[in-house]
Simulated assay, not measured.
Amino acid sequence: MRTYAPRCSHAVTLSRPPPLTLDAPDPVEPRLVCPACAHAVPIGADARCEACGASLAEALEASRGPRPPLPPRRLTRAQRRAVLRPKLRAHHDLGTLFLALGALMLPVALGFLRPLLLMTAIFLGVGFLLRRSGWPAALRREQKRRLQALRWGLPAPAVLTSVERHAVPSLQAGRVVQLGYVFTVHGETIQGSVPSPHVTDAQRRPGERVWAVYLAEDPSVSALWPPEP
Rank of each mutant, 00 (worst) to 15 (best):
C8M: 12
Q203T: 11
L110F: 15
L130G: 00
E58T: 13
A24T: 07
G127R: 03
A11L: 10
G153D: 03
V221N: 02
W225C: 02
L117Y: 10
T120Y: 03
L124N: 07
V163H: 03
M1D: 15
L22D: 12
L94E: 05
V83M: 14
P197A: 08
P136N: 01
G174M: 05
L129T: 07
S222M: 05
S15F: 14
H39G: 06
G125I: 04
A212V: 00
E164L: 12
L60T: 00
P19G: 01
L116W: 12
F128I: 06
Q143R: 12
Y214T: 00
V28G: 07
P136W: 00
C8H: 14
V177F: 04
T76D: 08
E142A: 15
L160T: 01
L124A: 10
A47N: 09
S15W: 14
A167I: 02
R74T: 15
T184G: 04
L150V: 06
A137F: 13
H39A: 14
G125E: 04
L110D: 10
L97H: 02
P35N: 09
P72N: 09
S9A: 11
V108L: 15
T161E: 07
H92P: 01
V177W: 01
S196K: 04
T21R: 05
S193N: 11
W225K: 03
P107Q: 05
L154Y: 05
R89E: 09
T96N: 05
C52P: 02
M1C: 13
Q203S: 11
L116F: 14
R89H: 10
S193I: 05
S220C: 03
A156F: 04
A149M: 04
A47Y: 06
L129I: 05
A59V: 08
I43C: 03
P206N: 07
T13D: 15
E228A: 14
P71F: 01
F183S: 01
A59Q: 07
A24C: 10
C8Q: 11
Q79H: 02
I122M: 11
R80K: 13
G127M: 11
L94S: 01
L106I: 12
A103M: 03
A158S: 03
P197G: 08
L118D: 11
L20E: 14
